[in-house]
Write a protein that binds this DNA or RNA. Structure first.
Lengths: 152, 152
DNA sequence: CGGATAAAAATAATCGTTATTAATAAATAA
DNA sequence: TTATTTATTAATAACGATTATTTTTATCCG
């Protein structure tokens, strides 16, 4: 994928979220724009701290609370996906704000999105077996990514 | 399953964990016994608070910190599975202390264990697609259990 | 038993997140 | 445009679940 094409994709995503904010009656402020720009541009499911650090480079006076509030707002309008982990840390996905599987490298922290065609079948199996009406899910695989596996 | 049979199963589980504690060189104290008895008897993936409340009925002087420490110890020797959720709450499974799928009712909080045969296939798919060496996983389905679905 | 030392109780500290409040700025009306 | 309304921000206090600390107690093993 060319750099130009990627820039376009990012801008499209930003525009979409801006439209969603207006649509829901929320104001578009420089702080919100800065946060969602970081989320749209980031390829690495950043943490709140990582977002805060990035945003501060261009917006030195922004408050950490504002970052939290903005992320919370984006969650509310379903434009960001929160990945909370057992160790109480959270990472955020601003690209695909709907449930999908993740592969998490326990060595370098990298998070990758696989396309798993058999997930649908698995959901069906769970439904028929238990009588649950399944609304959403969360699926994480943990292990070593290709790079870390070779370095060890 | 008869009540007697269930009692036997619970006792077997308790004995196993006690053996594991001794094996690892940890002492068996009345507090630890009380906590793991609750974990072994509970069918409902209890929270720390729920365990604390149960234990206190028979052991009124036990400290909350002791409950935390005991659970942490049982995690360490891989005899309890912690399920940490995005809202920072945690529930504990003392029956199957290895990764397995869960169905969580978002209305009543009930947690059920399905047997999903296609999970193995899914893991294979993730491995071949990404080059990850998968070590463990976490899979939760959220929705309405059979009872709650009918009551709504 | 008795001593070494792990574990428990009580409580203080920690830390990520949320709530509060006064100041600011965006939207709207005049 | 300017005034007015009200959402949003910044700064910081508060919160709460978990962890660390310290003193006391109790288990284990010879």
């Amino acid at each position: 994928m060319s750099a130009k094409h990627q820039d376009l994709e990012i801008q499209t995503r930003i525009d979409h979220i801006l439209a969603r904010l207006r649509e829901e009656g929320f104001r578009v402020t420089p702080q919100r724009l800065a946060v969602l720009e970081v989320l749209a541009a980031s390829e690495n499911h950043p943490s709140v701290e990582a977002i805060y650090d990035q945003v501060r480079r261009r917006f030195s006076t922004i408050s950490l609370a504002t970052v939290y509030k903005t992320i919370s707002l984006l969650k509310e309008i379903h434009e960001v996906l929160e990945l909370g982990f057992a160790d109480r840390s959270s990472r955020y996905d601003g690209h695909k704000p709907y449930p999908h599987p993740h592969l998490i490298c326990t060595r370098c922290g990298r998070i990758q999105d696989p396309e798993l065609s058999s997930l649908e079948e698995l959901t069906r199996e769970a439904t028929t077996q238990t009588g649950f009406e399944i609304v959403t899910h969360r699926l994480d695989f943990f292990g070593l990514c290709n790079d870390c596996r070779c370095e060890e």
